[in-house]
Design a protein around this nucleic acid. Sequence first.
RNA 1: GCCCUUGUAGCUCAGCAGGUAGAGCACUUCCUUGGUAAGGAAGAGGUCACCGGUUCAAGUCCGGUCGAGGGCUCCA
Length: 632
Amino acid sequence: MEPRGLPLVPADEGFLFFTRPHITKKRYLKEIFMSKQQDYENSPLYKIRHSLAHVMAQAVLEMFPTGKIAIGPPIEDGFYYDFDLPRALTPEDLKAIEKRMRNIVKKRYGFERQELSAAEAKELFADQPYKIELIEGLEAGGVDENGEPLPADERPVISTYRHDSFVDLCRGPHVKDLGKINPKAFRLLSIAGAYWRGDEHRQQLQRIYGTAWETPAELKEYLHRLEEAKKRDHRKLGKELEIFATNADELGGGLILWLPNGGLLRHLAEDFCKQEHLKHGYDMVYSPHIGKSTLWETSGHLAFYKDGMYSPIDIDGQEYYLKPMNCPFHILMYKNNLHSYRDFPLRFAEWGTVYRYERSGTLHGLLRVRGFTQDDAHHFCREDQMPDEIDFVLNFSLHILRSFGFKDFHAYLSTQPPEKSVGEAKQWRAAEAALEAALKRAEIPYDIDEGGGAFYGPKIDLKISDAIGREWQLSTIQFDFNLPERFNMTYIGADGKEHRPYMIHRALLGSMERFFGVLIEHFAGAFPVWLAPVQAKLIPITDRHNDYAADVAAKLKTAGIRVEIDDSSERMGNKIRKAQKKKVPYMLIIGDKEMEANAVAVRLRNGDDLGAIAVDEFITLAQKTIAEKETV
RNA sequence: GCCCUUGUAGCUCAGCAGGUAGAGCACUUCCUUGGUAAGGAAGAGGUCACCGGUUCAAGUCCGGUCGAGGGCUCCA
């Protein structure tokens, strides 16, 4: 369906063209979003899920007659409902609720819609305080059931839907009757705490999540997808492959130990990136982990970011803070000497380790930690260089990400927030234009988050799609109109006068911790050969092949290939299994035949058997794969 | 931080209704020398997260603390 007569161009195809000049891009993107949303809301799945939320509420109220119900919308892949109940739910309750739901669904009750006045609705839901609050919201016309303001042209109509004995305040839509729902195509998944209206100062409710599909086969496939995602979980693989460890008991939460395999991975990645940075006009700098409170006062972090910072350290009566960001240090470096307009662009890069307070409940493996290393850099340039600089940094970012095997990108351009922001409008417009132009030139699909920028400047966030289609934000490129002012940064222009430089923050992989979390999940632990901690495992069939294996290993090592020999007194099958579990790309089997032919029998971790290949030939093959950052 | 769940050997887990610990994998040693995902045997390994309580007796029950998982919230 074409909303409002517009041709529908999926936002993720990138290029926007406008058949009607008066339609702004923002409006256009919004319409695409809305149409996608509408597609879902009109889909059978949406109705099934929405209806099951009602059925679940009925089942729960049957078990807890004094229970209070809050809201229960469909969500991606399923639905939930929030309850205020006299006791905590258990996993057994979940099974019982599911069973009740199944029985209700089997009765094939129809859904009846009814419109009513606020007064009538309040009477109907007299013993349901959450519903009363929603009705009052609707009555006021200001907000919808999620607490979001309603557009002026959408006069709220209060409606209810009834099936069997259960009636709920709801705007629909629902299935015609429960016969449309396959009782074997849904499942309740989990119980979680959730605050009423998402406000942590208000009542905490119990939320039950469920998933629902049109057919049992789809449900099975969804559950299978969940299993697959679980297998890729970087916390599980990180442990199995000995990449990293956490030790909350003795070390502390949110702090990462990079084990030898992870250390090697990170070293290889950083080494490659640093070489690329040097090739592309960056200067490598280093800064300390702490700085005086006065530095953070000047930067504004103590005023605006204190919640993210740890308590100060007292050194000789002076307060020092652990750095949550690297920027102030790079600015001090900038200010270390006078700058001419001829110096630009200046690019300071640092793998800077920062510490930020994260609430304990939010910590998550490598993805959300309290101490992490950013591949951070700050660019300083003149206004006339700024568009080229943005162009450069975006392309450089894409180059780096592509080197790690990511192919699909999606950008989000965030513009000036309507309320508080620093800098002149002219600067904002120029910067926003530069960002957008760079995205267009790089042919990256993007969405505009109008007003979504930070107070200090517009930005691009780059997201990558991983092997199973999940989006992760890695790179960020941000203008900063704030710090150059605060630190009174200047350069001498061609006119002999002082000017303010443009400052750009950027992180490409973001944080090394997070990046490797994503990378592990993307490759499911089977890294491209150039990154694999062990690239080749030599598997002598009997121990009379051990000496030859050692010779081959020496040759491979000389050729720069990371190799290990498994000379344990196990059978070949056992050695292969072990190497396979460690996701070693090449397994080189050595027996009499290979020894005689000065060869190795190459088995890939995908199970392919390449047969016997001369050692020199294998070296050439492996080197090529490594150099091209390919995988096997 | 809040709610629910949870914390037993390096890893994955068992331990019934309280009576002072068990399996598989991994590890060590020995036997085995075997052609594309687990050969056999023996051994070593745990103050059952920590603190306190109930009890003749607690891994098992209760309370607290510190972690972890799923969410919520947060992520200038």
